[in-house]
Design a protein around this nucleic acid. Structure first.
Lengths: 214, 214
DNA sequence: GTCTATATTTAGATAGAC
DNA sequence: GTCTATCTAAATATAGAC
């Protein structure tokens, strides 16, 4: 069946990307990973690049869908951190996030990849935006925070950490610990009294104006 | 002269990495970018991979050296953010940080790259650690913060943002704005009274214990 | 030390049999 | 729709002339 082979090729592309990286994928490595003939890459997707772009979206859609329910249950920054940590540990082992890193690397010099990767990343940021705006709703940060910007920063940082983890596992652990501390500091602000919260708000607003000018 | 050709090859590798990406570099593209014969890659460095590894270190050493003086003059989180922002704008245009992203992508599936990239990243983190420990010296965060971890988180996030910038410039701008706000919030903590600072310290310590258990 | 020439392998892509 | 066979281009790497 056709749909079956298409899906095998999409999954094979992800597997090849994971084991060979963007520099090592080819119609042949993909075909081998998919268990089908390499010529089918061109029959179904036209070119290797188009298959890579399609696979990035296909894979990310699945990933995001798998975490959507957990995201929906998040009610605090602490819980969001826990989901992020779980996601990092789990997908680091599975290597699914690395695939986005590979696409992102390829996207730097390939406009078609850039479009596909931006679209795939958007699937994550939309989800994170939703969680962040809920979680930050009644914190001093929430009233002034650029939530879409924060969501993008989180996504970009996450991918950076994912890439780092492969070359420096110990450094990656230390980095995650440090980010936990940062989250704790932000949560502390939620527990402040009204006067202190107003002061924090002013501090953030001043910074926003400053960064707009810069 | 031999040293001259070696340097030309190293610089050519960086240029090729920037314009072709890790998936597109080859002895020929490097030779062309360096203005020398492709066979010299093998004569001087043994293989394309070894040249890539050498170039990552060579380039990062230069980069870090170019920013060392500015880092040394940083006395506050605000100033560190400004240097980071400058570095992002400048090197984003020059494409020098992207090179580390390309190496990092290649490192995911190539142990030799992983070693070289970890060493190159270490040059940045050492520098950032120094600045952070100075800047955070008398903030509540500084007393409990995992400064080495924070330095690695900063480095990883920076590279992630750099990769993001190429595929989504608007999203990248928004992300940087959001991080500025975060910095402002942290600076606000420095301006708190003794009682509030003690509370913030406790909040962070609790988070550290929690994350050690997790 | 550098270049030319070339052996060998692998990649992208297509034609045509089934 | 899928596979075999194959063309062409490009890659790594080496031998040997200069």
């Amino acid at each position: 069946m056709s749909t079956d082979t298409r899906d095998r090729l999409l999954q094979g592309t992800i597997d090849a990307l994971r084991t060979q990286g963007i520099a090592g994928v080819s119609a042949r490595t993909i075909g081998a990973a998919a268990g089908v003939n390499q010529a089918l890459v061109f029959y179904h997707f036209g070119s290797v690049d188009e298959l890579l772009a399609a696979a990035a979206m296909w894979s990310t859609e699945q990933q995001v869908a798998a975490y959507r329910e957990r995201f929906e249950q998040v009610r605090s920054l602490r819980e969001l951190q826990k989901v992020g940590r779980d996601l990092h540990v789990r997908e680091s082992a599975a290597g699914n996030v690395t695939v986005l890193g590979q696409m992102l690397a390829g996207a730097q010099t390939n406009p078609a990849f850039a479009t596909a990767t931006r679209d795939a990343l958007a699937l994550w940021t939309v989800e994170i935006e939703r969680v962040l705006s809920r979680v930050l709703a009644d914190s001093p940060l929430g009233e002034v925070a650029d939530v879409p910007g924060l969501a993008r920063a989180v996504t970009a940082s996450f991918i950076g950490m994912e890439l780092l983890a492969a070359v420096d596992p110990e450094g990656d652990k230390a980095a995650f610990r440090a980010l936990d501390q940062l989250g704790a500091l932000l949560e502390y602000l939620d527990d402040l009294g009204p006067a202190a919260r107003a002061a924090a708000r002013r501090a953030v607003r001043t910074a926003v104006r400053r960064s707009v000018r810069a």
